[in-house]
Computed example of a mutant assay.
Amino acid sequence: MKYNNILSVTENGITTLTINRPSKLNALNRETIQELHDAFKEADASSKTKVIIVTGSGEKAFVAGADISEFADFSEEEGANLAAKGQALLFNFVANLSTPVIAAINGFALGGGLELAMAAHFRIASENAKMGLPEVSLGVIPGYGGTQRLPQLVGKGRAMEMIMTAGMIDSHQALEYGLVNHVTSAEELLEFTEKIASKIMRNSSVAISSAIRAINANYEDGKNGFEVEIEEFGNCFGTEDFEEGTQAFLQKRKADFPGK
């Protein structure tokens, strides 16, 4: 599939999605959100993709926010619809993908950009990265899951401060907060992220998908994460990956998971 604002490359089991609007600091407009949905969906459905990396083009920005010009004159109803559609189409969609998603944050990740990074299963940042949710400086609040995911990752107090001040934190502060897992140089960011992706790919993709569902259940209203874990744990026993993994362990050899 061809995209206007995204580059999609699959090599060695890794699909890298690069948001490619450098003149707009990779800001998310409606077209880009739709294209990201389509690209994530395509990668998730492909047997060639074991891990997805999402990043931004250039050295300045991962995603510097949403394209404000698209909604500056919206009504209350239009604003609510914008948030609901965006969450369903992209942010919640990414968070619940069965394929692992890693955000490689290069440069600014602000507003919708940080919300996209937080929707990924975990994050790696370059040393020059800056992160924040500046929406209240525009008279609005984060609408793509930021008020929910940021407290889950950094705690209520820090999230309140970040959102209320509309300030940015650097990559090392983000690491201290637990917002990102690792910090690297800008030059090493993708290589480092790919190395972690390679470690993930050594394991059972079926079990990883089960783990994602079980972990996410703890943060979903009306779901008991422990019960989902029990169900997913039991489901694993009926998979070919479980049979291969246990036999490989008993035979003291490296597992060759079929992904079934």
Rank of each mutant, 00 (worst) to 15 (best):
I105L: 06
G111Y: 08
F122C: 00
M118E: 08
M118P: 03
A129C: 05
A103E: 13
A104I: 07
L110V: 08
N128P: 11
L116M: 14
K130Q: 14
K130G: 10
G113P: 03
I124G: 06
A109K: 06
E135I: 02
L133N: 08
G112N: 05
A119R: 05
G132S: 11
N128V: 15
A129F: 06
N128M: 15
E115K: 06
A119I: 01
G112E: 08
L110T: 02
L110E: 05
A104E: 04
M118K: 07
I124S: 11
A129Y: 07
F122R: 08
P134L: 05
A103M: 11
L110A: 12
F122Y: 15
F122E: 08
G132T: 06
M131W: 08
N106I: 14
V136H: 13
N106W: 08
N106P: 02
K130I: 13
S126G: 14
A119M: 10
G132L: 06
E135Q: 10
M131Q: 02
F108Q: 02
E135H: 14
G113S: 03
G107W: 00
H121F: 10
G107I: 01
A104K: 05
R123E: 13
I105V: 15
E135F: 15
A125Q: 12
A129V: 05
L116Q: 06
A117R: 12
P134V: 03
G111N: 07
G107D: 03
A103Y: 10
F108A: 10
G107S: 01
L114H: 03
L114N: 00
P134W: 10
L116G: 01
N106Y: 11
G112V: 08
L110M: 12
V136I: 15
R123D: 12
F108I: 05
G132V: 06
A125N: 07
E115L: 07
I124K: 08
P134F: 12
S137H: 00
M118I: 09
F108K: 00
G111D: 11
L114M: 04
A109I: 01
E127M: 07
N128Q: 15
P134Q: 06
N128Y: 15
L133W: 04
R123G: 04
A120S: 15
S137R: 00
F122P: 03
